[in-house]
Nucleic acid binder design. Structure first.
Lengths: 187, 187
DNA sequence: CATGTTTGTCAACGCTGTTGACCGTCACGT
DNA sequence: ACGTGACGGTCAACAGCGTTGACAAACATG
């Protein structure tokens, strides 16, 4: 097979598959991305995809990881943290985190995917926020902050509300940030 | 075919299909429910399902409609409305609305499904709330209330957080309700 | 009674994720 | 140097999916 055809810059075929999967899953989601399409873009036999990663689902999980510098937001001062969180979410929509969250939610039929998301949200959002909160029921309140973030993401990108996606980010951050701050402060 | 086998109480086959689809979709969601399974439970040929409803997706949309007495909550006094909303959502989880929302979100790959959800949320939540809100940017704030509701549903049933599903509903309603009320009141 | 329309049936299509059988290549112990 | 596993890769095939074309039966309408 001609090595200069598609992804000549990736050394090992396994890496080529991983990269192709990352791009295609991020672009089209789990259901709409076929194993044969991934294999084609990687310049590889479809069977090899399964051989290397066990299943389409396992490859999806290994590829779509939730990461991001959210910890920086949460290490700042408690004051105005709600607004900073909203601003961070709005910015992260253009880059990697937004679509990944969307596709993971849409694939949450599977219990394995749910556990994947649950763990990521726990480590990335709940735990750091919970550690910073003062007052009673810090863990519960941190989870409700995470729920508010999930709601924003859902309304912006999972089932986009045109009037919300077109809204002034500043106003969004002020209004929704205040609601988040309400839980952060704890009445 | 033996009429006493599965759904003898439904008159027309089309109605039997609709009923079987409602049950199976609500129980297992879009992806995990096959056309052949629906046909089997309705005691009908698989092809007939498509003949009558056009496609599996169309049947899914016709079956999974978001409805509920949410308007009653929103016609009450503005004071304490946030808490009433949360209580309503928590109760509606056991019955029909919760799972339907979950399965619709998980099927939101398709633009048709997204439009379906968008319209339902608009008519059922955004419009009534927006009509009641006082102050500036009533529409925007109503959409952010809807976002908070979506977030609660997501964290409770789409990717369930065990600590949240096990939490005292009263505390949940008080804390999260206050955050919603923050947007309702508009600072 | 003839005719057109709806209602239902059957087999098949092209697609999907996955696997069993097979082949080539490399490293290693004797 | 030679056999011998182990590993990476290929091919054809499987069972299941949603959907459709061809056709039959049942009905309403002129």
């Amino acid at each position: 097979m001609d090595p200069t055809k598609t992804n000549e810059r990736s050394k090992t075929p396994k890496e080529a598959i991983r990269q192709a999967a990352t791009e295609l899953f991020a672009a089209s989601g789990y259901a709409a991305t076929g194993v044969r399409a991934i294999a084609a873009q990687a310049g590889v036999d479809p069977a090899l995809v399964i051989r290397h990663f066990g299943s389409k689902e396992a490859l999806f999980l290994e590829t779509m990881r939730l990461e991001g510098p959210f910890l920086q937001i949460v290490t700042g001062p408690l004051d105005g943290m709600g607004e900073r969180i909203v601003r961070y979410v709005l910015e992260s929509g253009s880059e990697s985190m937004g679509p990944i969250f969307v596709h993971l939610l849409r694939a949450s039929d599977s219990e394995v995917v749910r556990a994947h998301v649950r763990n990521a949200v726990e480590d990335l959002y709940v735990e750091p926020v919970s550690r910073r909160l003062e007052g009673d029921e810090a863990s519960l309140r941190a989870r409700l902050v995470a729920a508010q973030i999930a709601g924003l993401i859902t309304t912006l990108w999972v089932v986009p509300d045109p009037e919300l996606t077109a809204a002034n980010p500043g106003r969004l951050a002020r209004i929704y940030g205040a609601a988040i701050q309400n839980i952060i402060d704890g009445r």
